[in-house]
Design a protein around this nucleic acid. Structure first.
Length: 525
RNA sequence: GUCCCUAUCGUCUAGAGGCCUAGGACACCGGGUUUUCAUCCCGGCAACCGGGGUUCGAAUCCCCGUGGGGAUGCCA
C-alpha cells in the first residue's frame, strides 16, 4: 500500500515554527519512503479560520519548498459527510445525544465501544480494583459511571469513566458485601436507565486498555476506565475536531500520522473511532514540542516564533528548514548542515527524540551564515537589495554586497550598511568620544585628510599607503589609526577591510565625514 | 489533584551493557592569520538529575524520587 501522510493545520493566524516543523517531518518522511505528502486545511472553526491565514500558510510552505502532492483538501467541505457519519453512529448505538445546552439543542457523544474484542486496538489487562469515597454515591448513567475516587488524603475526586471501561463493574461496601453488578443491567443502562448506588467503597472490574505502537515513543497504552465518552458533534451541529480529523484521514487514505506530542492522548480516542468506522487505524508518530529559550512552551508573548518573522529577519528558507529538522531529530552522525537530499535520505522516525527541544536562535544564525556564505554573489546581492530597498539602486551596492557577504549572518544586517551610502548613519558615541577626542589622534586625522585630498590615485593600495605614512609621520604605532578612522567615517568600530571600505565610500564622502567627526568631537575631552 | 511522556555540556545532539578518559555543533574564553574588523584555523571551558537495584561490568536495563513537558474542553 502506498504510504501517505498529511499536514493538517488550522488556518487561524500566523504559521508557527512548531507547526511548520511538523510539516517538515511529514515531508521528510514521505519523501524518504517514496510516499505522498498531502495537505489538508482544517478550517472547521469558521469563526477563526480566515482566507488570509490560508494564503499565509501556503506562502510559507512555498517559501520552504514543502511541495505537497495532489489537491488541497478543505475540511470545511466535508461537514455534511461528518454529520452523516455521526448519524450512522447514532443509528448503530455507538453515539447518543447528550444534555441540551441553554437553547435546548443537544450535542452528540461518541460512546466508547463496549464490545470491541481484544485485537489490534484494545486488549484485556486483568482484574482491577478501585477504592471509592463511600459517602459519594455512584451514578451509573448511559453517559458513563460517575463516582468519587479516593485521593491520597481520603478526599473524593469526582471522576467519570466510560461504560466500556467498567462493563463488568461490581460495587462492594466497606464490609465486602456486593452492592451492585453492572453486567446484568447493562442493556437497561444503554436503553436509558440510570442507577444510583450509595455506600460503595470498592469497585472491581476487568481492566482493558487501548494500545498502539508509537513510531517515536514506542509502546503506549491507556486504560479504558480512564477515558470518557467524547462529544463529536456540537449542539450547534458542527462536527468536532476528533470526528472530522479521523473521517478525513480515512477519506484521504492516510497511513501514517505524524503530529505534535500534544495529541498522544487524543490518539486513544481516535483509534476507537477508526474501529467503529471499520477502518484500519494508521500508524502514529508523535513529535516532541519545541520550547522557547527559557525552556517554556511558546506563548503569545513569544511573538518571534512565526515563520514569517524569520523570513523578514533575513533567515534563508533552506537554513530554517535545516535547523528545524534538527530540532528533535539528527541523522545519527556528526553532520548538521545537510542538503534537502541528504535529509530525505537520512530521515527516520525511529531517530526522532521524545523530549522537548529548546529553540536556539544563535545556532540558527550560525547555520544561516553558512548558507549565506555559500550563495552565489549575484543571488546574495539581489536578495540584499530586497532587504535594503533604499540603497538598492546605489552604484556601489553590488560591490558593497560582495564585500559584506561573508560576514552576514542574517539579511536584516544589510540595513547596517547605511554608512556606505549615506552620511546620516548612527555613531557608536561611547567609542567615538573615547578615540576622537584625543589630540594626537585628531592631529593624525587632520593630516590624513589633507593627504587623502591630494591623493591622485584613489585605490585601495594607495589609501593603505597613506594610512601607514600618516601613522609614521605622527609617531603612532602600526594600526593605531585604523580604529579612529573607521569610527569617524563609518560610525562603528567593526566592519570589512578599512582600505576597501574607504574606497567604496569615496573620497568626497570620506573627507566630509573626517571633517564632520573632528568638528563633532571638538573640545569634548 | 489524576493520568501519560520525558531527562547526556548553558543550548541542539551522538550514545542500542564493555568501543566512554562520554564524541560533534552552537555559544563562551584563549591563541594564530589579518599592520584594523570579520571570516578562517588551532586550542580551552563544559554534561550522563538524585537514590536504590540487576550485572563481572550501567550514560545505556529495572524501581523510587525530583525536574521538565503534555493531557484532563461542545479548542485544534
Amino acid at each position: 500500500m502506498k504510504i501517505r501522510v498529511r499536514f493538517a493545520p488550522s488556518p487561524t493566524g500566523q504559521v508557527h515554527i512548531g507547526n511548520i516543523r511538523t510539516a517538515i517531518f511529514n515531508y521528510l518522511f514521505a519523501r524518504h519512503v517514496g510516499g505522498e505528502f498531502l495537505l489538508r486545511i482544517e478550517d472547521t472553526d469558521l469563526e477563526r479560520s480566515t482566507r488570509e491565514a490560508i494564503d499565509k500558510l501556503l506562502e510559507c510552505m512555498d517559501w520552504l519548498k514543502l511541495d505537497y502532492d495532489g489537491e488541497i483538501f478543505y475540511q470545511s467541505a466535508q461537514a455534511d459527510k461528518h454529520r452523516a457519519a455521526a448519524a450512522e453512529l447514532m443509528a448503530s448505538g455507538d453515539a447518543y445525544y447528550g444534555a441540551a445546552d441553554e437553547s435546548g439543542k443537544r450535542p452528540i457523544f461518541f460512546r466508547l465501544p463496549l464490545n470491541l474484542p481484544d485485537g489490534r486496538t484494545v486488549r484485556t489487562v486483568g482484574p482491577a480494583e478501585l477504592a471509592l469515597h463511600a459517602e459519594t454515591p455512584v451514578e451509573i448513567t448511559p453517559g458513563g459511571i460517575h463516582y468519587g475516587a479516593l485521593s491520597a488524603k481520603g478526599k473524593p475526586m469526582p471522576t467519570v469513566s466510560a461504560l466500556a471501561g467498567m462493563r463488568d463493574l461490581v460495587l462492594r461496601d466497606g464490609a465486602g458485601q456486593v452492592l451492585f453488578e453492572l453486567a446484568p443491567v447493562l442493556s437497561r443502562v444503554l436503553a436509558g436507565e440510570s442507577f444510583r448506588i450509595t455506600g460503595a467503597a470498592l469497585a472491581s472490574f476487568t481492566r482493558r486498555e487501548v494500545y498502539y505502537h508509537d513510531l517515536v515513543k514506542g509502546e503506549l497504552a491507556k486504560p479504558l476506565d480512564g477515558m470518557k465518552d467524547q462529544v463529536i458533534v456540537r449542539s450547534d451541529g458542527s462536527p468536532v475536531f476528533h470526528l472530522a480529523n479521523v473521517l478525513d484521514d480515512i477519506a484521504q487514505g492516510v497511513t501514517h500520522i505524524i503530529r505534535g506530542d500534544d495529541h498522544v492522548e487524543n490518539t486513544y480516542r481516535h483509534l476507537l473511532l477508526f474501529e467503529v468506522f471499520k477502518a484500519t487505524p494508521p500508524q502514529y508518530a508523535h513529535l516532541p514540542m519545541i520550547v522557547n529559550a527559557a525552556g517554556k512552551p511558546y506563548s503569545k508573548r513569544d511573538g518571534d516564533a512565526f515563520v514569517g518573522d524569520f523570513r523578514s529577519r533575513g533567515f534563508l528558507a533552506p537554513a530554517l528548514f535545516n535547523y528545524l529538522a534538527l530540532l528533535g531529530w539528527s541523522p545519527g552522525d556528526d553532520r548538521e548542515k545537510l542538503s534537502l537530499e541528504e535529509m530525505v535520505a537520512a530521515f527516520q522516525l525511529e531517530r526522532v527524540k521524545s523530549a522537548p527541544a529548546q529553540f536556539d536562535i544563535r545556532k540558527l544564525s550560525n547555520l544561516n551564515g553558512l548558507y549565506v556564505a555559500e550563495m552565489p554573489t549575484d543571488a546574495f546581492t539581489a536578495l540584499a537589495r530586497e532587504y535594503a530597498p533604499e540603497f538598492a539602486a546605489h552604484p556601489a551596492f553590488a560591490a558593497v554586497a560582495a564585500l559584506m557577504q561573508n560576514r552576514t549572518k542574517a539579511l536584516d544586517q544589510v540595513r547596517d550598511w547605511r554608512y556606505f551610502f549615506a552620511d546620516d548613519f548612527s555613531r557608536d558615541e561611547k567609542n567615538s568620544r573615547k578615540q576622537l577626542t584625543r589630540p594626537e589622534i585628531r592631529n593624525a586625522l587632520a593630516i590624513l585628510a589633507e593627504k587623502l585630498a591630494g591623493l591622485s590615485d584613489w585605490t585601495e593600495a594607495a589609501v593603505m599607503q597613506l594610512l601607514e605614512q600618516t601613522e609614521a609621520a605622527v609617531g603612532l604605532d602600526h594600526g593605531k589609526l585604523f580604529q579612529p578612522v573607521r569610527l569617524a567615517v563609518t560610525g562603528v568600530a567593526g566592519g570589512a577591510e578599512l582600505d576597501r571600505t574607504l574606497c567604496l565610500i569615496g573620497r568626497e564622502a570620506v573627507l566630509r565625514r573626517l571633517d564632520a567627526a573632528l568638528t563633532l568631537y571638538q573640545g569634548t575631552e
